[in-house]
């Protein structure tokens, strides 16, 4: 299926182009723990491709495979036309990688970190300053400060500058927004948006569902499996049932009552509200009367516009449950 790119119409021309990352049936286990199973996806040139999933879903393992730091047990994966097994050098030269923990030397200053990465990648800060100007200029006033003394948001900007300094054509960012406050997160996504103008393809992971809408396409990943790959709009559109939002002073009582209602298909707390989907065939007793009978008189019901998270919840609750005694995959230590 041709994914929609209505956000960026000029990218229609990319559809015939070679994918930047092409993965087919990737599998990876650590001992008896299965970290990834049958992962297939394509990242197209110039797009921001997001992997959305909780801790332990296998995001970091997958990124380490893309960056040639780990070898898959099964499947094929090509990055910029290079095979991760044979041509790892070709890949390593052309990607910028920002691991989950910001890869910075805390005892070096901001400027020393940047210069170090520039030298290691055989370039200079001056040569590619244009690319990082927008990002680096925000932390340049602190260039003589040790990286360890920066705030989370500033570390994140420095790490991004370091990953970009050699002008990679593919940028791989593993949970760049984890542990950073809401303002810095928003700024970060703005920076990524600007980088697209430089024709840099971005693969990014995040555990935060709300960041999905910032990507051109997203893959929902959980328990080492990809659930769906599509544009955020298409994923949201996959939610086909009418959605209701219900509000009451006591969410606890409200949810208990809603769960008892025979016509209820799913109930999820959702911020101030409770999101409710109903079955196709409803019982005779209408919901408001049912709630009243259960002591909830202040309930307000409204139709709601489903968001991407509603669709994720729908997809995931239909999925197989976490098997018992499954050892959790620790993303940090493979």
């Amino acid at each position: 299926m041709e994914p929609s790119r209505r956000a960026c119409p000029e990218k229609q021309s990319f559809s015939h182009m070679q994918p930047v990352v092409q993965a087919l049936g990737i599998g990876k286990s650590f001992g008896t723990t299965v970290a990834l199973r049958d992962i297939s996806f394509e990242v197209l040139p110039g797009e921001v491709f997001g992997f959305i999933g909780p801790d332990g879903a296998g995001k970091t393992t997958l990124f380490r495979i893309i960056t040639t730091l780990l070898l898959p047990d099964a499947g094929e994966i090509q990055v910029m036309g290079f095979d991760v097994r044979r041509d790892y050098r070709g890949i390593r030269k052309n990607i910028g990688y920002m691991p989950g923990r910001f890869s910075l030397y805390m005892d070096l200053t901001v400027e020393e970190n940047l210069r170090f990465y520039a030298t290691v990648f055989g370039t200079t800060v001056e040569e590619n300053y244009d690319l990082i100007r927008d990002i680096y200029s925000q932390i340049e006033p602190f260039k003589h400060r040790m990286a360890g003394k920066l705030s989370g948001g500033m570390k994140q900007k420095l790490a991004l500058s370091c990953a970009l300094i050699h002008k990679p054509s593919l940028l791989i960012l593993d949970e760049p927004t984890t542990g950073v406050d809401a303002v810095s997160r928003a700024e970060f996504w703005e920076m990524l948006k600007k980088l697209k103008a430089h024709n840099i393809t971005i693969v990014v992971s995040t555990p935060y569902m709300d960041e999905a809408t910032r990507c051109d396409r997203v893959a929902l990943i959980q328990n080492g499996r990809i659930f769906s790959v599509d544009t955020p709009d298409h994923i949201t559109a996959g939610f086909s049932r009418p959605l209701l939002q219900v509000k009451s002073a006591s969410k606890h009582l409200l949810m208990n009552a809603l769960k008892k209602y025979p016509g209820t298909l799913s109930v999820w707390p959702f911020g101030e509200y409770v999101h409710l989907t109903l079955r196709d065939v409803l019982p005779e007793e209408p919901l408001p009367r049912f709630l009243e009978r259960h002591g909830i008189r202040d309930a307000t019901l409204m139709e709601a516009k489903p968001g991407i998270e509603d669709r994720f919840l729908e997809l995931m609750s239909g999925a197989e449950p976490v098997p018992e005694y499954r050892k959790e995959v620790n993303d940090d230590q493979p």
């Binding site: 555990p207 569902m209 606890h252 995931m316």
Partner: peptide, 19 residues
């Protein structure tokens, strides 16, 4: 932090119940 959306909601249900 870092918990999947279903578990996160179950967690909040626990909070509601506790409160």
């Amino acid at each position: 932090g870092g918990v999947d959306p279903i578990t996160r909601r179950q967690f909040w249900e626990m909070i509601y119940e506790t409160a």
